[in-house]
Every structure is written in structure tokens, then in C-alpha cells.
Simulated assay, not measured.
Amino acid sequence: MLQNPENTVFVRAATPLLVLTEAPVHDALPPLAPVSTGGEPPVCDGWGIVPRLTLCVVDGPGDHGTMIPALAAPVLGEGDLADWCEDAERAGGAVVVSLPTPLPTPLPPLLDLPALTRPATTRGGFVPLLG
């Protein structure tokens, strides 16, 4: 399934974030427990990510997965999508945060992970690199 790049945000960090809204895989991802400041999100067992400049793939168990036309999605933080991909390679993956509703527009310059993970409807976790 294809994720709308308008519903996607790549966030640069030591462990990068991939924020998806209204994602086709939302219900397949595990519920994301609230993450405290400095806390580590749980690993999404059976999921993997392939971060590339043109297409980012989030692959799940069975037929679950999504492809993101990466160049069309915004990147928050210093740098660009190439830097985000390097962050993901260094970290061994990325934290996928899936929200059932859109993010506010315009996007804030920083996203607050603890605030994003508070709603019971938030899903995701750390998704390791595939291959």
C-alpha cells in the first residue's frame, strides 16, 4: 500500500522518527505505550524499514506494509532526507509513530514524542532496518 507523502513527516534525531498519519498500516502496528522524555519506545516485532531517498518502505508481518514517496514528504530538523536516512542507518532503524488523525498545519519546528504517544490511538514503535 502507498502512504500519502502529505501524511508523512521525517524527523531528524539520534533515533529518527517517521510520523505517519492516516496510514494504511495504522491498525496493523502495535499500540504505542506513552514514551517518557528520554525513554525508549518498544520494538515493533516482525516489522522492518528500508530508508531510501526516493522511497521509504515499512514492511510488516504478512501482507502489512507501506511505501512512502520519500522525496515528497517534509523533514523536520537540520538537514534533509539524505541526513535522515543516514540517521536511520546509524541507529539501526527508526521510530515509527502512527496517528489516526492529521498533524497540525503548519507543522511545528519540533515534535514532542511524549505528547504524540499519549493518546491511546497512537501506534508504532522502533522498527529495525531490513536486511
Rank of each mutant, 00 (worst) to 15 (best):
T105N: 01
F10P: 05
P109C: 09
C56P: 01
G48M: 10
D112V: 07
F126N: 02
A28S: 13
W84Q: 00
G93N: 05
L55D: 13
P30V: 13
A73V: 14
A120V: 11
Q3C: 11
A14L: 13
T121E: 15
S98M: 05
N7A: 13
L17F: 13
L103Y: 02
D63K: 03
L111C: 08
R123M: 05
R90K: 12
L2K: 11
P109G: 06
A14D: 15
L103D: 00
P102H: 03
V58P: 04
L110S: 12
T121F: 02
G131K: 11
D63Q: 03
V97M: 07
L20A: 10
P31Y: 07
L76P: 02
A91R: 02
L99H: 03
L130V: 13
L107V: 09
V57K: 12
L53Q: 01
A14I: 12
R123W: 03
A13C: 07
A33W: 08
T105L: 10
A73Q: 12
L130Y: 08
V75A: 05
N4M: 06
N7P: 01
A88Q: 00
P74T: 12
G93C: 03
A120I: 04
N7C: 10
P128N: 09
V43Q: 07
L29T: 08
G93F: 03
D83E: 08
A88G: 00
V25C: 12
T54F: 09
V19G: 07
A115G: 10
E40Q: 14
G77I: 10
G60H: 10
A88V: 05
W84Y: 00
Q3F: 11
A72L: 15
A14H: 10
E89N: 06
C44H: 03
V57D: 11
L130Q: 13
T122S: 13
P69H: 10
V50A: 14
P41K: 10
I68G: 10
R12A: 07
P34K: 14
D27T: 14
A120E: 11
F126V: 08
G62Y: 02
G39R: 12
P119H: 06
L18A: 14
A115V: 07
P34W: 14
E40S: 14
L71Y: 03
L20T: 09
G79W: 00
A91E: 03
D80T: 01
V50D: 14
D45W: 02
A120H: 03
T117P: 05
L2A: 15
T8C: 15
D83L: 10
W47A: 07
A115M: 05
R118A: 14
P16T: 08
T66L: 15
F126D: 04
W84L: 01
T15C: 11
R123P: 04
H64Y: 02
W84C: 00
A14P: 01
L71H: 06
G65W: 04
L116C: 09
T21M: 04
G62T: 03
W47Q: 04
L113D: 01
E6L: 09
G46N: 03
D27Y: 06
Q3K: 12
P24Q: 07
R12F: 04
L76N: 04
G79D: 00
V97I: 15
V9G: 12
A33E: 15
R118L: 15
R118F: 05
G79N: 00
P119Y: 06
L76T: 07
I68T: 12
G131R: 15
R90I: 05
D87F: 02
P102T: 11
R12M: 06
V75I: 08
L99Q: 08
I68L: 15
G124A: 11
M1Y: 08
D112K: 08
C44V: 13
L110N: 11
